[in-house]
C-alpha cells in the first residue's frame, strides 16, 4: 500500500490520473472501517486532507458550492438557512466525532444507498463537480447514482464540490434507525418545497439499490397543489392528497430485507415520513410560525 499526500488539487488530480485505482481518503469514515476490518486493501490511498479548498464553501446567488470535504458539523452550523434539508440530514449522520470528519464527498464517492446526504441532495437539486486531468464536468445528482455503491465518476476523476440549489422554501429530512443516535438508516426520506417553481422534490435513501427520487409522487403532488391552488391560498393540504403522496412515495421504493429491516417496513416507513414531512414543510410554508425543524 502506498500513501499519496498531494499538497494541491492539481497534484491530487495528477496522482489519480497516474493511479486510477487509488482510493481517495478524506474523513476516512468509510475507507478506514474497510481497512481496519480487512475488507479492502487498496494499492494506493490518496489523502485529500491537505487540500484546503475541499473544506471550503461559497454561497452564490442560486447555489452553494460545497467543497467535498466540508465536515457535516460545519454544514449543520453554517448552512442551515441555505441548505436546511442537508443541514438536518447532516445532524443525523453517525456521531459527533464522525460529523466532524465526514463530508458529502465521501457519501457521494461511496454512493451507498444508506448515505444520509443523498435524499437531501436529491430533494434540493444539485450537481456534482467532478474533475480529472482531462477537465472538469458537472454531473446532475439525478444521474450520479448508477448502481449499488456505484456512481458516475470515471476512474481518474475526483469529486471537487457539489453545487446545491439554495433553498427557496422549507425542506425536511428524516431517517429511521433502531437507535436514537449513531445509527445507519433503515430508510430515509427528504423533501423540499420549491415555491419559486411551484414544485416539490424528494429523495429516498436505503430503500432501493441507489438513492432515488419519488418522481411519481412528486408529479402527483405538483399537479394536486397546482390544481387546488394550494400554493396561492396556502390552504391546509387535504389529507387525501397527503395520503396519496405518501403511498406514491412508498411506491418509489424498491427495498430489500436485510439485518436492518424488512422491505415491507421500509416502504411503510417511507410513506409515514413522506406524509409527516409534507405536513411539516407545508405548515412552515403557510407561515404559521411553528418551528418545523425541531431541534434537529
Amino acid at each position: 500500500m502506498d500513501f499519496l499526500r498531494p499538497a494541491t488539487w492539481e497534484e491530487a488530480l495528477a496522482a489519480k490520473a497516474e493511479h486510477p485505482t487509488a482510493v481517495p481518503i478524506a474523513g476516512g469514515t468509510d475507507v478506514m472501517v474497510e481497512i481496519n476490518f480487512d475488507h479492502r486493501r487498496p494499492e494506493y490511498l490518496l489523502d485529500l486532507n491537505r487540500i484546503g479548498e475541499l473544506s471550503a464553501w461559497t454561497v452564490g446567488e442560486e447555489t452553494v458550492e460545497l467543497g467535498a470535504s466540508v465536515p457535516y458539523t460545519r454544514i449543520m452550523e453554517h448552512l442551515r438557512a441555505e441548505l436546511p434539508g442537508l443541514a438536518i440530514a447532516s445532524h443525523t449522520v453517525a456521531s459527533p466525532q464522525i460529523r466532524n470528519r465526514g463530508g458529502v464527498g465521501g457519501n457521494l464517492g461511496t454512493a451507498s444507498p444508506a448515505g444520509d446526504a443523498h435524499p437531501a441532495l436529491l430533494a434540493a437539486g444539485a450537481e456534482v463537480e467532478a474533475e480529472s486531468v482531462r477537465g472538469s464536468r458537472r454531473i446532475p445528482i439525478d444521474a450520479f447514482y448508477t448502481g449499488v455503491k456505484r456512481n458516475a465518476l470515471a476512474a481518474d476523476e475526483l469529486i471537487r464540490s457539489v453545487h446545491i440549489k439554495k433553498a427557496d422554501g422549507p425542506q425536511q429530512f428524516s431517517k429511521v434507525g433502531t437507535r436514537n443516535a449513531m445509527v445507519i438508516a433503515v430508510c430515509a426520506f427528504g423533501l423540499a418545497l420549491h415555491p419559486a417553481t411551484r414544485t416539490v422534490r424528494t429523495g429516498i435513501g436505503s430503500a432501493a439499490p441507489t438513492p432515488v427520487r419519488a418522481r411519481v409522487a412528486e408529479e402527483f403532488l405538483n399537479a394536486a397543489l397546482e390544481e387546488g391552488g394550494f400554493w396561492e391560498s396556502g390552504r391546509i393540504i387535504t389529507p387525501s392528497i397527503a395520503r396519496e403522496f405518501a403511498t406514491l412515495a412508498a411506491g418509489a421504493c424498491n427495498p430489500i430485507d436485510d439485518v436492518r429491516g424488512t422491505a415491507r417496513y421500509r416502504r411503510h416507513a417511507v410513506a409515514v415520513m413522506a406524509r409527516r414531512q409534507l405536513g411539516w414543510t407545508w405548515e412552515q410554508y403557510r407561515g404559521t410560525g411553528r418551528a418545523m425543524e425541531g431541534a434537529a
Binding site: 500513501f3 466525532q97 470528519r101
Partner: peptide
C-alpha cells in the same frame, strides 16, 4: 475500530474525532 463507539476519541487540531478512522499518514 469502526467509528461506532467513541472510545478512541482524540482531538485533531482541536476537533474531536475517532482516531481509529484517521489514517496515520493524514496526521502529518
Amino acid at each position: 475500530e469502526q467509528g461506532e463507539c467513541g472510545s478512541c476519541t482524540v482531538r485533531l487540531d482541536g476537533v474531536p474525532v475517532c482516531s481509529c478512522l484517521v489514517a496515520a499518514g493524514q496526521v502529518e
